[in-house]
Design a protein around this nucleic acid. Structure first.
Lengths: 335, 335
DNA sequence: AACAAAAATGAAAGCGCTTTCATTGCTAGT
DNA sequence: ACTAGCAATGAAAGCGCTTTCATTTTTGTT
């Protein structure tokens, strides 16, 4: 592989001029630039980015940490983030933290050990204090689906409260008044906010929130099954689950209890995961704009760290939308 | 951040000794090692891996190229590959080639530009010739779900012929004799082999292969819909689809034609994608050992390039298994 | 104690590139 | 033609580490 020395010799200029042409950040005469470019082309020159990184103290790497690599939820986000970064010549180092405090910290240290210029984090176990300390270490990072007031400009979230509101309003608008709710884990901020939105929509419709119609779930399919089993002693015609995985578990259990979907029970999920299109009936769900969040988090990094302005204003909060599918049916059955 | 000079000064040894202690590849006296380790600890020394890469001409990066980052199929594989690599201190640069020749080539050049030590490729557009030339360029790579005789030792595949055989045998064993088949795109090697396995199982059961019961699909959901629509003029009680996405499309269309699943029609898919567990009825399918393939491809790279022996023999061909779920019913209806 | 061989360590060069400051070249004005 | 100022270029140092070869130290034998 050709080096900068060979290009300089062939072009008849110094190393510094080759470097300047290559980086385009300092004025170079048209004559010199032309000579360098010809030499580069003739030699098939490709800069050694490791040498560039060492000399410039910038690696053009962005660490991306998510809860899990496997499973569909993050893959859209990763695809969008990776694509946005690559388009600007940066590369993503992607790894997982498994929603575990120590593993998340290990993963962050791993990425910093890789000398990533910045991090994009979608994690939920480490404390706000840890993240604020990370910021004090001058580590630039953007946060997805996690809000910290002190560093709000780099936090990108969906309006989870509005999502819970939308899910609930959709069943109310379909005529349902007996509505059950399976929430996510209480320690998760998004779960809390979704529940608040649910409660707001009930209040707005003059329906009292009744804890007997509320199950505290775990965001897993088995949580949805258990939730339905426990709630089934109540009478309700609609069920909202704080994520799609629990919705599918609830669907399974509802059928076990002899219910026909959506005739006997309407179900609304949350996040619009890939499989929501494959259930039978197809699942109505609140779309989590995870791809948009990822895209914006990447754009923030490109702007703040690399000073690449993509001509798009940075938005920190994204609105959810309801995706209407077959699992939600009007209570009069005349859909 | 502390550098090797500071460690050497504090420990009272030379740079070379610090380097030797750090890399553990050359004998160092216990006394010197102890002094260096104490100094490292006191200074919180972390090697600059960029400098290591430049000086040693080895980056500890492995490029991972898949068809798509979004969607569930590859995410398991990526999770396994990334985890195996990280466990040995290597990091994965992950990107996508979108099953397009030029984009795959661009992606490979991108990864080589990142100075990856090796590549792990799950791609299907570039030619065998291109890959052989890549090998001639001394680029080590492992190939997943793609076989090339000349470089068989780095190719990791599932026995697709056996998978087609298993899918077909499962419906035959359930008593079905009128069996239709929706195959994948003819240019894809795996699609060809799956069809061959299907034909072998038919022949073994004394059932003649009839092209009227065969639709050439596209591995997409809409191909499954179109396939069922076209085949529905025939009488058959079982349908095998060469992948799960087409199976869900066929399920949709079968219901449109008034069929009850699995009473009127049994369906078997291929690959055991995430959503196979969420369909109604849940989908019987041939499990594609994609995670095992990815794991083995990563182990090969660790062994061949980094001389890390994981004490596991390298296997190049993996056997599929049938995952029996509710979409397959015995023809006597006594399941 | 002397010598030889093996082991351990240090000095120096260099990996490929960036960047700073000194030097040279060019342009405009008188 | 000369001068001053600005622009462009080149030389040199260095980023943090590895590795080779020369040197020193240690060990074993006589």
């Amino acid at each position: 592989m050709a080096t900068i020395y060979e290009v300089a010799e062939l072009a008849g200029v110094s190393l510094a001029t080759v470097s300047r042409v290559m980086n385009g950040n300092v004025k170079v005469s048209d004559k010199s630039r032309s000579k360098v470019q010809s030499a580069m082309k003739e030699l098939g020159y490709q800069p050694n980015i490791i040498a560039q990184s060492l000399a410039s103290n910038r690696t053009n790497r962005v660490g991306v940490l998510v809860s899990e690599l496997s499973g569909p939820f993050f893959s859209y986000m990763l695809a969008v983030v990776e694509s946005a970064l690559r388009e600007e010549g940066k590369h993503a180092i992607i790894t997982a933290g498994h929603s575990n405090v120590e593993k998340e910290k290990d993963a962050i240290e791993f990425l910093l050990g890789c000398r990533c210029d910045a991090l994009i984090l979608h994690i939920d176990a480490v404390s706000d204090e840890y993240l604020l300390k990370l910021r004090e270490r001058k580590v630039p990072f953007s946060l997805i689906n996690h809000h910290i007031d002190d560093i709000a400009e780099c936090c990108f979230t969906m309006d989870n409260e509005q999502g819970g509101y939308l899910a609930t309003k959709s069943v109310i608008d379909a005529g349902h008044t007996q509505i059950a709710y399976i929430s996510g884990p209480e320690f998760k901020e998004d779960a809390q906010l979704r529940l608040q939105g649910h409660q707001r929509a009930l209040a707005e419709a003059g329906i009292a929130f009744d804890d007997n119609f509320h199950y505290r779930g775990n965001y897993n399919e088995d949580g949805g099954k258990a939730g339905f089993d426990e709630l089934s002693s109540q009478q309700f015609t609609a069920l909202i689950c704080a994520n799609d995985e629990m919705a599918t578990g609830a669907m399974y259990s509802a059928r076990k209890h002899g219910l026909s979907l959506p005739n006997d029970l309407s179900i609304v999920g949350f996040d619009d995961q890939v499989f929501a299109r494959y259930t039978y009936p197809t699942l109505s769900t609140v779309k989590n704009p995870i791809a948009e969040l990822g895209s914006m988090a990447a754009k923030w990094v490109l702007k703040e760290v690399y000073e690449i302005n993509t001509n798009e204003p940075i938005s920190n909060v994204f609105e959810p939308t309801l995706i209407k599918r077959d699992s939600l049916q009007s209570i009069q059955g005349n859909q």
